[in-house]
Design a protein around this nucleic acid. Sequence first.
DNA 1: CATGAATGAGCGTTCATTCAT
DNA 2: GATGAATGAACGCTCATTCAT
Lengths: 192, 192, 192, 192
Amino acid sequence: MDKKNKILEASLELFGKKGYFETDIESIAKRADVGKGTIYLYFKNKKDLFISTINYALNNCNEEILKSVEKVDTPSLKVERYMETFFNIMLGNVSKIKFFTMNNINSNNQISDFSKNIDKKIVIKRFQILKDIIEEGIEKKEFKDFNSEIMTMMIVGLIHMEISRVIFFETQIDQKRIKYLKDNVIKILSKE
Amino acid sequence: MDKKNKILEASLELFGKKGYFETDIESIAKRADVGKGTIYLYFKNKKDLFISTINYALNNCNEEILKSVEKVDTPSLKVERYMETFFNIMLGNVSKIKFFTMNNINSNNQISDFSKNIDKKIVIKRFQILKDIIEEGIEKKEFKDFNSEIMTMMIVGLIHMEISRVIFFETQIDQKRIKYLKDNVIKILSKE
Amino acid sequence: MDKKNKILEASLELFGKKGYFETDIESIAKRADVGKGTIYLYFKNKKDLFISTINYALNNCNEEILKSVEKVDTPSLKVERYMETFFNIMLGNVSKIKFFTMNNINSNNQISDFSKNIDKKIVIKRFQILKDIIEEGIEKKEFKDFNSEIMTMMIVGLIHMEISRVIFFETQIDQKRIKYLKDNVIKILSKE
Amino acid sequence: MDKKNKILEASLELFGKKGYFETDIESIAKRADVGKGTIYLYFKNKKDLFISTINYALNNCNEEILKSVEKVDTPSLKVERYMETFFNIMLGNVSKIKFFTMNNINSNNQISDFSKNIDKKIVIKRFQILKDIIEEGIEKKEFKDFNSEIMTMMIVGLIHMEISRVIFFETQIDQKRIKYLKDNVIKILSKE
DNA sequence: CATGAATGAGCGTTCATTCAT
DNA sequence: GATGAATGAACGCTCATTCAT
């Protein structure tokens, strides 16, 4: 792995675990096993590194989700896979949780600064994947004819709420709970 | 207004606008028109002030929502009022937006520290208000028999997604958009 | 006891225990059971209070020593009483220790400021009491004909060294140790 | 001179002149001609710097005294050299005075904290040098058979008293005064 | 390319002092 | 006289960024 990627992986872990402001460059350098100055060879400054890290993480996640949903056929199964993969990425890699809630971004007066630099296409893509599935389900008469945009936002919103709940109440999210969430979403979506 | 409340209002505005780490005590003091030292007469330290501010904001919001939904009769209208009030609080007071997304809380490695001190009852209350409405609607056969917990999380999640969208894409949220969201939620909930 | 004396007693205890800079006006006010503002009715500022406290303490000490040495007849017994009383004041009132070592005074760039205001006569008096005793002993041929000024400084110096030793090494000073010190001083002073 | 030593020298001067609490890190940095942050590369915090400075100063002083007493032969001359060097270090370097009186240490409620960290061996060494000389003098029948521990404390105590006197009364200490003190001490010590 | 020693702006917090009651 | 709420100057320490090697 080249130095740039080592830095991104270290950033992902540390920004994810401790947030933007409580992560310092020195600890990223140490974790990535490079010199502090080296980071500034690949990234303009801390903010640039942060944004790059988010894009890197979101991209990885989208790819994983896409690969997962492609393995099944029906829209229902695809929705289940979408939710499942989303949760599992988080279960397996706590450090990534934060990036999917946009928390770090907002807790900053340079919202627009950050927003301008985060690749909007990647975020949109994450929604689009689910929206496409839902529209396919509606077309195939497998899902009720709900507004697909709204339904997408509600499902992604549900996932975010669940993550917030887990963090906030310090509970656990297990496979049983994931199944419970999936089943109810499918029930809401499905005709009959 | 006494000094303590002036400080809380200033904190609400600044923490809301700029987040925990980029808001400094001095600017809160200036905005509240009190001395920097005065803040420390009423709050133990910055974190204590932050947590107090969140509790203060969430409480205010819950009260406003409750008052609003009590004015109408049917569950459908109540859901609409809930969403509407939620959005309007934010439209009218951008500074409060952040607190409802828990963003500030998470962007910190002391998540549990903060979480422990935020009055969980207030957060739960916000969900409970909507859950009660939905269960009333189901009982009265006005709403479909969906899982009320999941449906609550999905609707609150939808609101959060919309707020994130507005912040992230720097768009506007107007009454037309709010109506669009409400109508679609009601359509999803309603029998027939 | 009037308020001024209550404040002086509280100051003596706290300045003695914690030193000038780590003692705050608020805690003195609390200990003296008066309002913080009240202190400023009787003393111009913190420094003035400190100096007044030192003078108060040194005066008390001189009086106690004088009373004690007057009770015995021979110079040897008087020297013993001087040393003994000095140590016992400290044993019985740890808080006073500091003032006799001038420590607090020196740890300040306003040495001269402080020095100018501490009643030099009181400090001189403390030495003079012992010097008079030694000169009496020499005159009465009880003591060797050493320089009385030097011998006085050496004995007071010995006491200070012992106090420093006790504080620094956190040991105890007991009656046996005091007897040991006295006996050796008398041996040094005495003819035969 | 490397940065660490430049910082120690600046600390020695400023802590010595103004005491622990009235010396601020910024002024040490300025005097040492380094950045404020640089100090924290070499010392954990202000207290650590202070303790390191004391140990540094005491060590230097011990070495200077040792070198000086070794140049002469008889115990009497060695005692004179000890006193002389002690005073001259202070005459030539006012800033060091304070450290030899332990003043700074005591003016703090964290006495034990500080005491624990100051190298006791260095302080003991300073006494031991003189005690060894006195015992040598006694053995060689040059000095009276006084208790060497007490005599050591009295002579070091005398030096401290003289220093305190100089600081307190803002007088001068000149070679004539030093000779006067030495002569009288030798007279007290000597047989015949 | 890579490093890490050096920097100094910036911030949370304390506390002596004031003054309206 | 007596009070204590209010103030803001001052200081220890952190950390993003630079630059000589």
